[in-house]
Computed example of a mutant assay.
Amino acid sequence: MLSSSAITTRVLEPGDLPAAREVLNRDPVANAFVAARVQVAGLDPWRLGGEMWGWFEDGRLEAMCYAGANLVPLSAGPEAVHAFADRARRQGRRCSSIVGPVGSTALLWRLLEPHWGPAREVRDCQPLMATTEPAREVAPDPLVRRVRRDEMDLLLPACVAMFTEEVGVSPLAGDGGLLYRARVAELVTGGRAFARFEGDRVVFKAEIGAATDQACQIQGVWVDPQFRGRGHAVRGMAAVLDVALREFSPVASLYVNDFNTVARAAYRRVGFAEIGAFMSVLF
C-alpha cells in the first residue's frame, strides 16, 4: 500500500505540460474540450481560464481536474476524485457547472453536494457519441455554411435561444453577455460556426466548439422551432460533420441529454454511435 507521501495534489505548472498531454491523450474524445484549451493556452491559468489540478502517484501525474468556469475531472479514479473534492471544497465554488465522465463526476458531486448543494439541475446521463466517417445515408444540406463575421448579429439571437433552451438560463445574465458574445465571436472568427440562413433568419446552426489533432466536439446544435420536424437537424449535422472530419480532426464527437430522444435519433442517422456517457451538474 502506498504511503501518504507518495500521493500529492497540486496546481500544474508549465513544466508539467508533457505529462498533462499524456493524461489527456488517454481518452482524446472525452477530453477534447480541455485538451483543445491546453493545446492553445498550455497550463498558464490566465490563458487557460482556470487552474489545472494534478494528482500524482509516486511522482507520476495520473489524473487532472480543470477548475475554471467548469469543474472537469480527467482520468480520475476514486482517490484522485477525493483529493480534487477536498481542494474544491476548501476553495469554495467558483464554477457554474461540474461536467465530465459519469463515474468520476458522480463521485465528485456526491462529495461536494453537502457543501455546494443544492444544484439547479443534475443531468446524470448524457450519452457521448462519436464517429470517424461522414454521413452515408443522409445527404448534407448544401445551404449550411460557415457564418461570416458580418453575420454575428444574425447568429447571436439563435445562440442565445439555444443556450437558454438547453441550460435553462440566459447567457446574457450577469455581465450582460460580454463573455458569451466574445465566445461566439471567437467561433465565427475561427471558422467553426455553421448555419443555414433563410433571409436574415437562422434555421439551423451548430459549432465545432473544441478541436485537437485527435478529436473535435460539435456543440450548440439548434433548429428554429418553427422549422423543426423537417429534417434540418439531420441534414445540417451531416454538413457540419463533413467539414469537421475533413478539416479539423479524424474523430467528431458530441454529447446529448439522454431524455432528448429526437436529437439522439438524428445523430444516429448521421452515423454517430454512443461510446460513453457524461454527467453535468448545473448551478
Rank of each mutant, 00 (worst) to 15 (best):
T132S: 14
E133F: 15
P134L: 09
P134S: 07
P134C: 06
P134Q: 13
R136I: 11
R136E: 14
E137T: 09
E137L: 04
V138D: 00
A139V: 02
P140R: 14
D141S: 05
P142C: 04
P142G: 04
V144R: 00
V144F: 01
V144I: 04
V147K: 05
R148D: 14
R149W: 07
R149G: 15
R149P: 08
D150Q: 04
D150L: 09
D150A: 03
E151Y: 01
M152C: 15
M152K: 11
M152Y: 13
M152D: 08
D153E: 06
L154C: 11
L155W: 08
L155K: 00
C159M: 13
C159T: 12
C159P: 12
V160Q: 00
A161V: 12
A161C: 06
M162E: 15
M162Q: 15
T164K: 03
T164F: 00
E165Q: 14
E165T: 13
E166A: 11
V167I: 02
V167W: 08
G168R: 05
V169Y: 07
S170E: 01
S170P: 02
P171E: 00
L172V: 10
L172T: 10
D175V: 05
G177A: 12
L178T: 08
L179Q: 11
L179E: 08
R181N: 01
R181W: 09
A182S: 14
A182L: 09
A185I: 04
L187T: 09
V188F: 09
T189K: 14
T189I: 13
G190L: 12
G190C: 03
A193L: 14
A193V: 09
A193E: 04
F194A: 09
R196T: 12
F197G: 05
F197R: 15
E198W: 06
E198S: 13
D200L: 03
D200M: 02
D200N: 13
R201C: 04
V202E: 00
V202T: 06
F204I: 13
K205R: 13
E207M: 11
E207G: 03
E207S: 14
